[in-house]
Amino acid sequence: MVLTIFLQVAAAGQSFACTPVRVWDGDGPIWCAEGPRVRLAGIAAREMDGSCATGHPCPNASAVAARDGLVRLVGRPVGRSRQGHVIVQARPLACRSTGSAVGKRTGAWCYTSTGQDLSCEMVRLGLAARWNRYWGQHRCATFGRS
């Protein structure tokens, strides 16, 4: 029997792979098979009850539209958990941690296997709002391509 130790919060600046297995809403968390729960960096999406958290930017897109858009970007839905998460089948993401994102979540910039920046795509599609406080100097570019 192999014992796997799951990483809870990746240190800021650390790169890691995340194979999505569950998605909660449009900015995460994304549950990774490798352990972390990723909160996408630099963006805000509506909560699943349709509200926007106090002090967060509030996009026009509904929570369901944002969640389903993120699911499509990372892979494809294959079911639902008892808690309401969308269970996904997906290829690994390449992520870079921005550190803790409250609780046992890792804030991160993540890129699909085709190089799409998830945070940038969510904003471009109108499914999430750019959160300038956490966006910093990030630039939207395709990862791994010249």
Rank of each mutant, 00 (worst) to 15 (best):
M122P: 00
A141H: 13
L118V: 11
A108I: 08
R133H: 13
K104T: 07
L3S: 13
A141I: 03
G99M: 08
P36C: 10
W31I: 00
R39Y: 08
L70W: 06
A141C: 03
C120E: 02
R124Q: 13
W135E: 09
C32R: 05
E47F: 02
G144F: 00
G79K: 02
S51E: 03
G144P: 12
A101E: 00
S62D: 09
M1S: 15
E47W: 03
A10C: 14
C18A: 13
L40I: 12
L3H: 12
A128T: 07
I43N: 00
R145P: 07
F143A: 11
I87Y: 04
V88F: 02
T106E: 06
N132G: 13
T142M: 07
A10F: 02
G79I: 05
S51W: 08
Q137G: 01
R37P: 11
W31Q: 12
P92Y: 06
P57I: 00
V74A: 06
P57T: 11
A66I: 03
D25L: 05
S15T: 14
V78K: 14
C95L: 00
A66K: 09
Y134L: 11
G84T: 12
W131S: 01
A101P: 03
K104W: 09
L118Q: 09
L73V: 08
G79P: 05
D117Y: 10
A108G: 03
K104F: 03
P36V: 06
R96V: 15
V86H: 01
A10K: 12
V78E: 15
G103M: 11
T4M: 01
R133S: 14
F16R: 02
Q8Y: 06
G42H: 01
T114N: 13
D68W: 11
A33Q: 15
C58S: 00
C52H: 04
I30N: 01
I30T: 08
H56S: 14
S119E: 05
C95S: 10
H56T: 12
W31R: 13
R145W: 03
A11M: 05
K104Y: 03
W24L: 09
H56R: 15
V74I: 14
R130C: 10
F6L: 14
L7G: 06
I87M: 13
I43S: 05
T54A: 15
M1H: 13
P77G: 01
R76S: 12
W131F: 15
L70G: 06
A61Y: 10
A53E: 14
S15G: 05
P77C: 04
R130S: 03
A11P: 15
A66L: 08
R124Y: 08
S113L: 10
G84L: 10
C58W: 08
F6Y: 14
P36E: 10
W135K: 10
T19Y: 11
V102T: 13
T106D: 02
I87V: 15
C52I: 03
Q137M: 04
W109K: 09
V102R: 15
S97V: 11
R139P: 01
A45E: 01
A101T: 01
L3E: 14
L40C: 00
V102Y: 15
V38D: 01
Q14T: 13
Q14K: 12
R72M: 10
Q89G: 07
V2F: 06
D68V: 06
V86M: 10
G50F: 07
L127Y: 02
P36W: 05
